[in-house]
């Protein structure tokens, strides 16, 4: 594992952004008083903690080694996510059968090849057969 100060700073930045978003959102909701706590009081408290810790992370966590870099293989993950979104979008339109088959096909054909699974056609055929014939 290597140090990736930029990634750590980025993580802190995102956490800080969530915190600030929470702060703004909860202030808009109204904090109320302790006798009559408003809807924003609790999220405000939580957001303060997140924001403060994000700052702490930015200051102290730069030398952490717990991050992983993105590689060319990360493109696969993006493709996978895209296929899931398409699946969810098609589901209400044409039922679940066809999108399910498509999803399994895409994952076996494009995402698994590198994992040493060269026999995907037979695997898929077997799966199809067992699904359709039952």
């Amino acid at each position: 594992m290597t140090e990736r100060p930029l990634a750590q700073l980025g993580a802190a930045g995102v956490a800080g952004a969530i915190g600030v978003f929470g702060l703004v959102g909860s202030l808009a909701l109204g904090l109320g008083r302790l006798t009559a706590p408003g809807p924003g009081l609790w999220p405000f408290t939580v957001s303060v903690v997140i924001t403060v810790l994000a700052v702490v992370l930015a200051l102290t966590g730069r030398h952490g080694t717990d991050t992983e870099g993105f590689t060319r293989a990360s493109v696969q993950t993006a493709v996978a996510v895209l296929s899931l979104v398409v699946f969810a979008a098609l589901l209400p339109l044409i039922g679940f059968e066809i999108p399910s088959l498509l999803l399994v096909f895409v994952w076996m054909r494009f995402l698994a090849r590198s994992a040493g699974c060269h026999r995907w056609p037979s695997a898929l055929a077997r799966w199809l057969r067992s699904t359709c014939c039952s």
């Binding site: 993580a11 915190g19 939580v46 957001s47 903690v49 997140i50 810790l53 966590g61």
Partner: peptide, 17 residues
């Protein structure tokens, strides 16, 4: 890291709202 754990917990609390 402890800091990251608490931040994650904080986000969980925020999601619960």
């Amino acid at each position: 890291g402890r800091t990251k754990s608490v931040i994650a917990a904080g986000v969980g609390l925020l999601l619960a709202t």
